[in-house]
Amino acid sequence: MAKKPLPFPEDQVPTADQMLNRLYAIEPNSFETERIAENLRGKRNWISAFTIPVSAILLVSMTLIGTFLSDRFVVSFLISALLVYWIGKIVEFYDKSFDRKARIQVLNHIAETETDYAFLPHFKSFLPNKYQHLVRALSKQNFFYIVPYAKAIQHLQRHLDHDAFRSYWHLSYPQTKPQQETQVQVEI
């Protein structure tokens, strides 16, 4: 029998069906950082589309103005290039802030999904070996593996044998096994 990842208190052990319902209630698309970042950008999504044309126009216009004022083309080009580079870095930092916010949001969602007693580590026996590093990290409450986490959830939702999981759960937590209501009658 496999070692339990994080034991439940005696009075709070969920049933196998509760764990399965919780598994299928998870939306794997809710872990897509790119989609969440696009939603966070909202109407400001046009900024990344116009970065290169605006940078080129700024570089040319600032170089022409600098050349007109100082009669030094190379110096005005270098100063203009540095200013455009600096403005580009500011825009890039602003754009990356949405990616960071989306990643933090997804990490918080994983932490909510795992709760105090872990979730995915209880399905460890039903995951391929390539997810064992993820299970160990989740047991230690390290939620930084976003893509493997989403893939593991999808794998379980598609390939989990419910009867095998119920048997495994009842062996791991015998107090959750449903009691037989009917008794066998012996005829003499």
Rank of each mutant, 00 (worst) to 15 (best):
R35C: 00
L83V: 05
P121V: 12
Y145F: 11
N129Q: 08
R100I: 10
L156Q: 08
L82F: 01
I79T: 04
Q185H: 11
Q154R: 15
M19K: 15
K130D: 07
F144D: 13
F126R: 06
L23T: 06
N39H: 12
D116W: 05
S70L: 05
S97P: 06
H122E: 09
Q154I: 03
Q183N: 08
T33A: 14
E112G: 05
L83N: 00
D99I: 06
K101R: 15
F144K: 15
L82G: 04
S61Y: 07
E10M: 02
E34K: 12
A81L: 15
L83T: 05
L107M: 14
T113C: 11
S97C: 07
G88E: 02
L171P: 00
P28V: 09
V91P: 00
W169A: 07
T15G: 15
P9V: 08
L6G: 00
V135L: 13
H122S: 10
S70E: 03
T15C: 08
Y168A: 08
G42E: 04
I146M: 03
Y173P: 03
S125Y: 03
I79M: 01
T15E: 11
S30Y: 03
T63Q: 06
A2G: 04
I153M: 15
E34D: 09
S55A: 15
E114T: 03
N39P: 00
L58K: 02
F31T: 02
S172E: 08
E92Y: 10
A164C: 07
I153W: 02
D116V: 03
F165W: 06
T33H: 01
H133D: 14
L107V: 09
N142S: 11
H109D: 09
R166W: 03
T115K: 10
P7W: 02
T33G: 00
P121F: 10
R158L: 13
V54T: 14
Q141L: 06
E38P: 00
K4Y: 02
S30T: 11
W169H: 05
I87A: 13
N21W: 04
N108H: 13
L171N: 12
Q175K: 14
I65L: 12
E38W: 06
L156F: 09
A111M: 05
